[in-house]
Computed example of a mutant assay.
Amino acid sequence: MAAGLTIWDASGNIVLDASHRTLRIIDSVVLDGSNGSRSDPSMVSGGFVSFQSDRYIGWLSGGLIHPQFSFNNGTLTWTYSAKNSAQYDEYQTGILFYGAY
């Protein structure tokens, strides 16, 4: 059975056809600056992330270190690089939404 969303305008023209790869949110997790991972068998064929950060500006003399995301065989992993300056560098925190196609 086909799944997705198709929207037409008043003239019958397709304005959105999202029937090929429909996204499904599996879960969300609050990222606090620590490395971590989540596994789900439905992410084996691919997945997506949407990271909603708490803030966009760090110290003017330091850096804001954002998480790096990767998928491998149904496991989503996020890692943070090491701080260059313990005094001024900050880890980007926020909410991570993740799912599968």
Rank of each mutant, 00 (worst) to 15 (best):
R55P: 00
A3G: 14
Y88K: 01
F71M: 14
W59H: 11
S45C: 06
S61F: 05
Y80W: 08
S11T: 15
A18W: 14
Y91M: 00
A3D: 14
S34M: 03
F97H: 13
A3K: 13
H20M: 10
S70H: 07
T75M: 08
Q87S: 10
L16S: 15
W59S: 08
N13Q: 15
W8K: 15
N13I: 02
D54Q: 10
S28C: 07
T6A: 13
I7V: 15
V29G: 03
A3T: 15
A100I: 02
G99E: 09
L96H: 04
I26D: 09
A86R: 01
S28Y: 08
A100W: 09
Q87W: 03
N84V: 00
I7N: 06
S70W: 05
G63V: 02
R21L: 13
F97Q: 11
N84F: 01
S19Y: 04
T93A: 02
Y80K: 01
G47Q: 04
G12K: 08
R55N: 08
D54E: 10
L5G: 07
S45M: 11
T6P: 05
G99F: 02
A82H: 07
G62M: 01
G94I: 09
L23W: 06
G33S: 02
G99V: 08
N35R: 05
R38Q: 11
N13C: 05
I26Y: 03
P41E: 12
Q87V: 06
V29P: 05
S37I: 00
T77K: 09
H20F: 11
L60N: 08
A3E: 14
G4P: 09
S61W: 06
G36C: 03
S11F: 14
G63I: 02
L96K: 05
V49H: 07
F51E: 04
